[in-house]
């Protein structure tokens, strides 16, 4: 994925056919991160005093998940979102949509990590060894790598001097 051009406040991205296919394959997995993953505080003694705020936070996250899920659905159903040519596809996104896509990809990446049991990153950069690959965890292992790659490409477009 590369920046084709920045036009009228929108990011026009060029995707290889494989990148488009993988993006469309992984997005339907949203949401994946368990709602109970986030806590307002680590201070158990103080947590009870923040009960009301914690509940509001849970509700706010839940509402956001619903909005993002709807946005994913709309994105996947919008055939005009991608413009095809002989080199692949062009994807046009506004600033808000880029942030949304980053958040959704990160949720799938983190949710896949959670489904694998919150493993530490290995020295080779992966979260599971190839020997442990199975039908049960293959999709999660792939999603971690794929979402991370798409996120990194988007971030390099947003911050090209990094």
């Amino acid at each position: 994925m590369k920046l084709e051009r920045r036009a009228r406040g929108r990011w026009v991205l060029r995707l290889l056919p494989q990148e488009k296919m993988l993006m469309l394959a992984v997005l339907p997995r949203y949401p994946l991160l368990p709602p109970e993953f986030h806590r307002l505080t680590k201070d158990e003694a103080h947590a009870a005093k923040l009960n009301h705020a914690s509940q509001l936070l849970v509700e706010a996250h839940d509402k956001q998940r619903q909005q993002h899920r709807q946005a994913v659905q709309t994105f996947l159903e919008d055939a005009s979102r991608f413009t095809e040519d002989e080199d692949g596809a062009l994807l046009s996104l506004g600033d808000d949509e880029v942030e949304w896509l980053l958040q959704v990809l990160n949720d799938i990446r983190m949710g896949s990590w959670a489904r694998l049991g919150y493993p530490q990153q290995r020295e080779d950069g992966h979260y599971q060894s190839v020997e442990n690959l199975s039908k049960k965890n293959a999709l999660d292992m792939l999603s971690i790598e794929l979402c991370g790659a798409l996120q990194q490409q988007l971030l390099e477009i947003l911050h090209p001097t990094d």
């Binding site: 990160n106 983190m110 990590w113 971690i144």
Partner: peptide, 9 residues
């Protein structure tokens, strides 16, 4: 161990 460094930035 999972959030990308550039993403956090």
């Amino acid at each position: 161990p999972v959030n990308l460094m550039d993403y956090v930035t």
